[in-house]
Simulated assay, not measured.
Amino acid sequence: MFTIQTLNAISPVGLAKLPKNLFEVSVNAEDPEGILVRSADLLNTEFKPNLLAIARAGAGVNNIPLDRCSEQGIVVFNTPGANANAVAELVVGMLIAGSRNVPAASAWAQDLAGDPNLKKDVEKGKKQFVGNEISGKVLGVIGLGAIGSRVANCAIELGMEVYGYDPYISIDAAWNLSSRVQHCVNLNDMLPLCDYLTIHVPYLPTTKDTINAQTLALCKDGVKVLNYARGELVNNAAMLEALESGKVAQYMTDFPAEELLNNPGVICTPHLGASTPEAEDNCAIMAAQELSDYLRNGNITHSVNMPDVQQPRAGGKRVCIIHKNEPGVISQITALTTAAGLNIENMVNKSKKNMAYTMLDVTGPMDNGLKEKLDEIPAVIRVRIL
């Protein structure tokens, strides 16, 4: 029986993926093997030695201390793509709503309550909210992952000309992308072409302020920019300057900041991207399945701090070892299993930066001292025998 602690309200649809005969799920679990979390801040949390994994029901993991988790052999999962449809729909909706000035027009219309000349004033006032159609316009998409590719494909169907920039596009994403999306190998070549620009990349030290004074200077005058990925991807000071100069006509973002509010041309929504019951269900289901598969079988899928490793069970015992990515570790592991009289039926080893994961399916009588001997290898962080 594995104990799982939930630190936020997790969708019951997701929790149902953790069978009650195998998992005890509780908000108040004192010494859990797994944690399910959404937005709770774990950066200063002291993790007990029994904790094996943390699954984040969402994509961002800036609320989890990844380096410390790696040092303690705690696998951290996220759920990439689970909320992709929700975010993509919001982006496309705002692409249209912003172009037609719907937010400002709606707010103006609300102030007409009690106006005795309502119909006349509506006809007179609507001129100030005239927008444009998006069909025939050029959209630039930075990042062609699960969300960016959906936005690009939908924009194609709405009659837009779409350019995409993603130097790290995956094979799966490329297969899912419409052949009519034109791929740019250089961001600077794409920026001057775009009437609209939308960004869909993860927030990393290397992607901070991707949209800045330099990139905005390369854009077409009057460009409209959408950011429904992460607030830190856009430099707000540079954006406000571009709005004031007319370089940017509109900035639509899901990340309100004090300096952005009440600025003409800025449309802020309160982080609505993944705020749908469908997205919450999808994230919870994926997080629960990742956690279950790791705790029960040692398989790692969608980890942000460990390599992804999956292997069907081949019978016997499964030995799972988290270790530093250093020379000679594999030979030490296999030497100990051989000395224990075990036959290795299947073995897989993968690394991710300075971390590595080795998984062996072995047959033969298991020596109770094997785990202790493996733990004594200097580079080994955690050993599990399933």
Score class of each variant (00 low, 15 high):
217 A>T: 09
186 N>K: 10
269 T>K: 03
385 I>T: 09
182 Q>L: 09
356 A>L: 04
353 K>P: 02
146 A>W: 02
41 D>V: 12
82 A>K: 05
26 S>K: 15
104 A>Q: 13
280 E>P: 03
69 C>V: 11
345 E>C: 06
218 L>P: 02
377 I>W: 00
374 L>N: 05
106 S>Q: 11
106 S>D: 09
305 N>H: 08
131 G>M: 01
72 Q>A: 13
149 S>T: 15
60 G>W: 05
188 N>V: 07
378 P>I: 10
343 N>Q: 12
146 A>Q: 13
317 K>A: 12
364 G>W: 03
337 T>A: 01
292 S>N: 11
158 L>A: 06
279 A>W: 02
196 Y>T: 04
80 P>F: 01
191 L>F: 03
134 I>M: 01
284 A>I: 13
30 E>C: 04
178 S>P: 05
352 K>V: 09
105 A>I: 08
118 L>R: 13
384 R>Y: 06
161 E>L: 10
159 G>I: 11
218 L>K: 14
318 R>Q: 04
173 A>F: 07
120 K>I: 07
362 V>N: 01
254 D>G: 12
98 G>Y: 04
63 N>K: 09
245 S>P: 02
132 N>E: 08
147 I>F: 00
239 M>F: 08
344 I>K: 02
172 D>M: 06
193 L>C: 06
94 M>L: 10
36 L>K: 12
121 D>Q: 14
224 K>V: 13
134 I>L: 02
225 V>I: 14
311 Q>D: 13
300 I>H: 02
183 H>F: 11
265 G>H: 03
240 L>V: 09
141 V>W: 00
237 A>Y: 07
297 N>K: 15
104 A>R: 11
314 A>F: 07
170 S>Q: 12
346 N>D: 13
101 N>W: 03
167 P>K: 06
67 D>A: 14
312 P>R: 06
175 W>G: 05
57 A>C: 15
371 K>M: 10
295 L>C: 10
10 I>W: 00
54 I>E: 00
131 G>P: 01
46 E>P: 14
78 N>G: 04
218 L>C: 06
246 G>P: 04
43 L>G: 02
128 Q>K: 15
363 T>H: 05
297 N>M: 14
212 N>W: 05
254 D>T: 14
242 A>E: 03
46 E>A: 15
147 I>K: 02
368 N>R: 15
364 G>F: 05
300 I>V: 14
359 M>G: 03
90 L>W: 05
370 L>R: 09
72 Q>G: 08
384 R>G: 07
